[in-house]
């Protein structure tokens, strides 16, 4: 009894909505990075098992929490596609020495350079490589699935930095509006029958235009209602600030561009490229911060940062550390 109570309390502390949306995304990203960098099947399976266990343990009854089966099916699909690809578009390179079986091979030419060879010798090592690579991508997908099943997407929009406030508002307006729009599309589609006329793709005009006119009307009302409540006030922001935000943004973009080039190029160390990209990431965050300075809004009911979040952050850091130092290789 006591143990059960204890477990229930533990579960409540770590339930999906008690943890900050950002923490879930951090964990998901670190798991995705770890899976992306490893070729060790056990690590990959461990990542998938861990993600599933966390989802099972922490999830609550919310519409977005049921999506994990979608990610599982997608992961299985990726592995299957990888294996089928291996079988069908086999590489006719040097003969492998661990042939499992041989399919009658077909070769066809599309008039583009090399011949495409279908089927042929299937080796154990190539199938294993395909399997592990598929598993790696499934693990990335499931890691993202973890964040998506545990974090409320609306909360994520609410906690966007204020440089992206307008866009986040447009997106949450769109999410609120979608069910109403589905209803009005159905309404207009039925009304359309009363007018008579074409069906299929051609009828889309008679449906889209009235709905669009309605929604535009509605959007201007919405804008009036937002503005009348104070949306659109701007704090004083000096020219220097604007200029420096622009410059920071530019440098972040430039750094990432150079980083991408170096990462792709033969010459140059990939460590330097990665360093540049990390720099770009930092500058990007700085840009967002700079652009957020001007706003004069306050935030009612900011998402709470409970101590349990530190556990998630610690796990994420550990996973990331192991991945970057090659312990998962």
């Amino acid at each position: 009894m006591g143990e059960k109570m204890h477990r229930l309390g533990f579960r409540r502390v770590f339930s999906a909505s008690k943890i900050h949306t950002g923490s879930w995304w951090l964990l998901a990203l670190c798991l995705a990075i770890a899976s992306g960098l490893t070729r060790n099947a056990f690590v990959l399976l461990a990542v998938i098992a861990f993600a599933l266990a966390v989802i099972k343990f922490c999830r609550e009854n919310a519409p977005w929490s049921r999506s994990i089966s979608f990610y599982l099916r997608l992961g299985a699909f990726v592995i299957a596609v990888r294996l089928v690809f291996r079988l069908v578009f086999n590489f006719a390179g040097s003969a492998p020495n661990d042939v499992l079986f041989t399919l009658p091979s077909v070769s066809l030419s599309l008039g583009l350079g090399n011949q495409v060879v279908l089927f042929g010798d299937v080796s154990a090592s190539s199938m294993l490589a395909a399997l592990i690579d598929g598993l790696r991508l499934s693990a990335i997908i499931i890691a993202i699935g973890l964040a998506n099943s545990l974090a409320n997407p609306r909360k994520l929009l609410k906690s966007t930095p204020s440089a992206l406030y307008e866009i986040a508002t447009a997106l949450s307006v769109a999410i609120n509006l979608a069910p109403q729009l589905i209803a009005s599309l159905q309404r207009v589609r039925r009304a359309r029958g009363l007018r008579g006329g074409s069906s299929g793709l051609g009828s889309l005009r008679g449906i889209v235009i009235p709905v669009l006119e309605d929604t535009i009307e509605q959007s201007l009302q919405l804008a009036a209602s937002m503005d009348a409540r104070g949306f659109g006030r701007k704090g004083e922001r000096g020219r220097g600030e604007i200029l420096s935000a622009r410059l920071a943004g530019f440098s972040a973009v430039a750094l990432s561009g150079i980083g991408v080039y170096l990462l792709l190029a033969v010459t140059g160390s990939s460590a330097l490229a990665l360093g540049l990209l990390v720099g770009a990431l930092g500058l990007g965050a700085f840009t967002v911060k700079l652009s957020s300075l001007r706003k004069t809004r306050s935030k009612f009911r900011r998402e709470l940062w409970l101590p349990a979040n530190w556990v998630i952050v610690a796990i994420s850091a550990a996973v990331l550390g192991c991945a970057l130092t090659g312990r998962f290789a």
Partner: peptide
């Protein structure tokens, strides 16, 4: 929403 836009204390 309105008070947030006006920067009123939470």
């Amino acid at each position: 929403y309105g008070p947030e836009q006006l920067g009123i204390d939470p």
